[in-house]
């Protein structure tokens, strides 16, 4: 009995201490996190909140006296704005195509790199080059490559007999979209390659060997063993790049500025033009809010997928 009593008391003290420690440590955590959180909320939440409020006004920079509350007028206008719907179509076309093509090519490259002997491991570093080049530089590189008059693409295609006459890549709606997708694919392949290459390292070798031992060919082994094991990486890297491409600005801005006409005008470029070329701050905020919702949904999906076990 006394032993039990003693044990009980001891447990209580331990619990108390643990509770006290927990309380103390969470307090410390709050104190340590506070400065960062305050700065983050000021830098991220304040502009977001300001844009949200602005979207209910009719503020235009060149009309400082005009600043009345218009409730949902900007959102109603948006529903009937042809340009907005064009940018929705362009953004989805550009984003989905870019990510899909990048992932496929990256998958091939990553598998090829995985098969290479160790002495070629330096190639992984080389393949990163397009990824580390700033977007604005990539934009200018491809602007000149696709140039009608002096571009190397036209030069080579003509020499190879693919085209008879030079093609105005950046001045044809469909071709301009292809050109900006090519530039982005080139820029983003390294990211996917790196992610997939890391994923391939986690595929159990014994499973692969067992598949071959069972008589599977290379394709069957890839489809039934490798692919299921890197599925998580593929989903996460694709979603990450989907989110990034929704916000992609410098390459498109440099190469086409959204043109010709509105054929490569994506959401982020549209918002920029509305705010800084047409000075329609409130309407730009309303359009921005719609995209915030879209991206928020995608981010939630991304976080859920990160937590999921594959």
């Amino acid at each position: 009995m006394p032993n039990n009593k003693f044990r009980k008391k001891k447990n209580n003290v331990q619990l108390k201490n643990r509770g006290g420690n927990l309380h103390d440590s969470s307090k410390t955590a709050v104190i340590l996190l506070a400065p960062g959180l305050i700065i983050m909320s000021f830098v991220i939440l304040y502009p977001l909140l300001r844009a949200f409020i602005l979207s209910f006004y009719n503020r235009e920079l060149t009309k400082p006296n005009q600043n009345s509350f218009v409730l949902f007028e900007n959102f109603q206008r948006l529903l009937h704005d042809d340009t907005f719907w064009t940018t929705v179509k362009n953004t989805f076309t550009f984003t989905l195509t870019t990510v899909f093509i990048s992932v496929i090519i990256a998958l091939v490259i990553a598998i090829a790199l995985d098969q290479l002997p160790k002495k070629f491991s330096g190639l992984r570093g080389l393949i990163l080059i397009p990824w580390v080049i700033p977007g604005i530089v990539v934009g200018f590189l491809f602007l000149y490559m696709f140039d009608y008059d002096v571009g190397i693409i036209n030069f080579f295609l003509q020499r190879l007999g693919v085209i008879e006459e030079y093609v105005p890549w950046l001045m044809d709606g469909n071709l301009a979209m292809i050109a900006i997708i090519v530039a982005h694919v080139w820029n983003q392949i390294p990211f996917h390659t790196l992610m997939i290459a890391a994923g391939l390292k986690t595929v159990p070798r014994d499973l692969q060997e067992a598949a071959f031992a069972e008589g599977a060919n290379r394709w069957q082994e890839f489809w039934h063993v490798t692919l299921p094991n890197i599925k998580g990486i593929l989903v996460i890297s694709s979603l990450l790049m989907l989110i990034r491409n929704f916000n992609n600005f410098p390459i498109i801005f440099t190469m086409t500025g959204g043109g010709p006409g509105e054929s490569t005008l994506t959401s982020v470029l549209h918002i920029y033009k509305l705010a800084f070329e047409k000075f329609q701050l409130s309407y730009a905020s309303a359009v921005g809010m719609i995209w915030v919702v879209v991206l928020l949904v995608m981010s939630i999906v991304y976080i859920r997928l990160l937590q999921k076990e594959y």
Binding site: M171, D172, G259, P260, G261, E262, S263
Partner: peptide, 14 residues
């Protein structure tokens, strides 16, 4: 002027 110039590109590319 921005709206005009942007849409005049439609005229020369379509």
């Amino acid at each position: 002027a921005t709206t005009f110039a942007t849409q005049m590109q439609e005229l020369i590319t379509t």
